[in-house]
Write a protein that binds this DNA or RNA. Structure first.
Length: 205
DNA sequence: TGAAGGATTTGT
DNA sequence: CAAATCCTTCAC
């Protein structure tokens, strides 16, 4: 375990036990860690996220519990991964208390290193994980990772913002922008999307 | 059991 | 702006 992450930087399940609208902005700047079976690790900073809550018509759990959204109804600190448009996966972090179905959609990350399977000739490096479908493709996240515990040694976990990033936020050197969410047909006016202002790795549209 | 449509991305 | 592509949900 020690070789993956020091204990102070790992984000614990209790950190997710808040409304998604609180977790989403706090997730910006945190590090998403992808851990592969062969031991390889790919890290990226979260630069864009959206919140989905129980009384939100755009939330997959808005109507009722189903086989697909079941993990959202469980305890916080797990992944919710689903297939969209038959060809892309989206990664969510399950938030809020047990039985309160809500999640944070990770829309973009800025990779620290580019995995070997990415063809950089086809795309600028900062765009590789700019978009919810693209980041899952880049980090090889699919339905097998649905319901995973976000814990060291598992396929995915999160680490807190670096002290340097937090200082930049506090000093106003960097800032977050809050806007409406993207690609929805319901709940279009809720301003529950946050991203790192001026970041080239944020998704388009 | 079938049809409609989606928290996307890409190319025309 | 439409295609790609398939799973989930809801209606019958």
């Amino acid at each position: 375990m020690e070789r993956f992450s020091n204990t102070s930087s790992l984000i614990q399940p209790s950190w997710f036990a808040r409304p998604a609208t609180e977790v989403a902005p706090d997730a910006i700047g945190c590090i998403l860690v992808r851990h592969f079976p062969d031991g390889q690790i790919v890290r990226g900073m979260i630069v864009e996220a959206e919140a989905y809550t129980p009384d939100d018509p755009a939330c997959h759990a808005y109507r009722r519990q189903t086989e697909r959204n079941a993990v959202m109804f469980g305890p916080p600190g797990r992944t919710y991964v689903y297939l969209i448009y038959g060809m892309y996966y989206c990664l969510n972090l399950v938030t809020d208390l047990d039985t309160v179905p809500s999640a944070v959609l990770i829309r973009a990350v800025q990779l620290e290193t580019i995995p070997a399977w990415i063809d950089l000739a086809k795309e600028k490096f900062h765009q590789v994980a700019a978009g919810p479908g693209k980041l899952c493709r880049a980090l090889q996240i699919d339905r097998h990772l649905n319901g995973c515990l976000l814990q060291v040694g598992e396929p995915l976990w999160l680490e807190h913002r670096s002290p340097e990033f937090q200082q930049q936020l506090d000093a106003g050197t960097v800032s977050l922008t809050q806007t409406t969410r993207i690609g929805l047909t319901q709940g279009v006016d809720l301003p529950w999307r946050w991203y790192l202002a001026g970041c080239a790795a944020v998704s388009k549209r």
